[in-house]
Design a protein around this nucleic acid. Structure first.
Length: 492
RNA sequence: CGGGAGGUAGUUCAGCCCGGUAGAACACCUGGUUUGGGACCAGGGGGUCGCAGGUUCGAAUCCUGUCCUCCCGACCA
């Protein structure tokens, strides 16, 4: 099998696919638009889940699970929401198959099993959840309701890409209900902060926090907050969103509570989510032409040990030495894999674990045992160093921290170098075409202008950064007055 | 959903134009030699040629339909 990775500079799309496939994260599947997440990729996702889940719980949330199917009538209730998702829903219309009488050995939909009301495979769970919340919320004492669910959702996209846009994907969706608007807005902002912290501290992925323009807003939301990341090809990727839903869903599903003054009020809502798309972001942000580079904090395993042995006697010696090293590393909280598979030689394994992005590789041969050192290689810089066996865990721990920090710094430097102000329309177009990245420019605040710019350049407003500096200027396109700059970019 | 390319062994692909017994490399299995950056020798196993029709004495190859994948576009809270 070819293990060569397409060069990033030659064909970015192919480079990305190679990374995912050859890095062992996922495979294409025989089912339209869906993918198989392999154990290595799923372990990565589990590590991400663990970190996020802890952050959710630390901010007072609990997990629950709601049904996969949404009756059509539920989805219809919030109009904007319904329209936004209508075009990409998988619909269950029948509940039974039967043997095809005209053709033995094949099955057909039993026409007698037609459902009176279609069931939609959830593209998101607001509808089902708000229908439930109606029964759970009666008084202000029931609020706030802070619930998250880990689930799969289905969106029938026309064109799919591994992790970035698949027909079915895994995610978490938080759905909260509050007594006041302020409290709900604070919740939406808090969760955006959680996402940003996760992206930066765990994934080593610098992100920009901001709000979406009305055009890019979630269907049914009053305000959509987002974190935007920059990929190595200069395109932006929406990495997570948090929505202030106002009272839209409360009104659509008639969710009211009795306040302290004994008056009925509609509750205020938020929803927020991140998905396996984050894995795509990770892949595109940190990898090189040798393969993936995974941040130590979420890597499926942080260290791989490769033995280099000549003959069975050495093998026994090395196995014994590695055993003590592994105990040392594990005691320090480091996850480690020992690959003493006989089939592959060291050189093959070196290349393989580089493809998989394992942060640190330790090679140990008889020579090393004699000298009381191990050869330690870091994936991010490919630098090799010698480390004594004594206190190895402490040094490796330090190295892992260093790699985590270095990945962030590198991505941050690249990102910061790719936020460029543009003051004229020509400059704006030139920047998008030649340099890529975020272009910071004045915008007159209208959807019409936003649409026109998209039509002419394919660039969209990624976000209006939070805490944006006020600055008087003129719209890059229409020349009308503007009070602040917004970030444009080509996006995934 | 439009345009393009494809689907043949576990993987990557050749064979198709011009119909005539199913191929290569890598991977896998056995034995041996090896092991510090993708080892070598010898032997071996493995494919209803995506699926369904049609043409033909005969179809991986020609025709029609269909499903799936990739790339570009449209679409994408």
């Amino acid at each position: 099998m070819s293990k060569e990775i397409t060069s990033r500079s030659e064909d970015y799309a192919q480079w990305y696919n190679d990374l995912v496939l050859k890095g062992g994260l996922a495979d294409y599947s025989a089912v339209r638009g869906c993918m198989v997440i392999k154990p290595y990729g799923y372990t990565l996702w589990e590590n991400m889940q663990d970190a996020l889940d802890k952050m959710f719980k630390d901010t007072g949330h609990v997990n629950a699970y709601f049904p996969l199917f949404v009756p059509r009538s539920f989805l219809e209730k919030e109009e904007g929401h319904a329209e936004g998702f209508a075009k990409e829903c998988a619909v269950v219309t029948h509940y039974r198959l039967k043997v095809n009488p005209d053709k033995k050995g094949t099955l057909m939909v039993d026409p007698d099993s037609k459902l009176e009301e279609e069931l939609i495979v959830r593209p998101t769970s607001e509808a089902v959840i708000w229908n439930t919340y109606k029964d759970w919320i009666q008084s202000y004492r029931d609020l706030p309701l802070l619930i998250n669910q880990w689930a799969n959702v289905v969106r029938w996209e026309m064109r799919t890409r591994l992790f970035l846009r698949t027909a079915e994907f895994l995610w978490q969706e938080g759905h909260t209900a509050h007594a006041t608007s302020d409290e709900a807005i604070a919740e939406a902002e808090q969760m955006l902060g959680v996402y940003a912290e996760f992206a930066e501290n765990w994934m080593a992925l610098p992100v920009i926090k901001g709000v979406k323009t009305p055009n890019e807003r979630f269907a049914g939301a009053v305000e959509t907050y987002c974190i935007e990341a920059l990929m190595q090809d200069g395109k932006a990727l929406q990495a997570g969103t948090s929505h202030f839903l106002g009272q839209n869903f409360a009104k659509a599903f008639d969710v009211k509570f009795l306040n302290k003054e004994n008056k009925q009020e509609h509750v205020w809502a938020t929803s927020w989510g991140v998905s396996t798309r984050l894995i795509g972001a990770l892949v595109m942000a940190h990898s090189d032409d040798s393969g993936l580079i995974l941040p130590p904090k979420i890597a499926p395993f942080q260290v791989v040990i490769v033995p280099i042995s000549k003959g069975d006697e050495q093998k026994v010696l090395i196995d014994a030495k590695v055993k003590t090293i592994m105990e040392q590393l594990k005691a320090a909280g480091i996850t480690v894999k020992y690959d003493n598979n006989d089939n592959a030689r060291p050189g093959w394994k070196f290349a393989e674990y580089e493809l998989k992005g394992v942060p640190v590789r330790i090679a140990i041969g008889a020579r090393d045992i004699e000298n009381n050192v191990a050869e330690v290689a870091r994936r991010d810089t490919k630098e090799k160093m010698s480390m004594g066996f004594d206190g190895l865990a402490v040094q490796v721990k330090k190295l892992l921290d260093d790699i985590q920090q270095n990945l962030y710094n590198k991505a941050r430097t690249y990102r910061d170098a790719h936020i460029t102000p543009a003051n004229t329309w020509d400059e704006f177009k030139k920047l998008l075409e030649e340099k890529g990245g975020f272009v910071s420019a004045h915008w007159d605040g209208t959807s019409e202008t936003e649409d026109k710019i998209k039509e002419e350049t394919k660039a969209t407003i990624r976000c209006i950064p939070l805490n944006n500096a006020r600055e008087d200027g003129k719209c890059i396109y229409s020349g009308k007055p503007s009070k602040e700059r917004v970030l444009f970019a080509l996006a995934y």
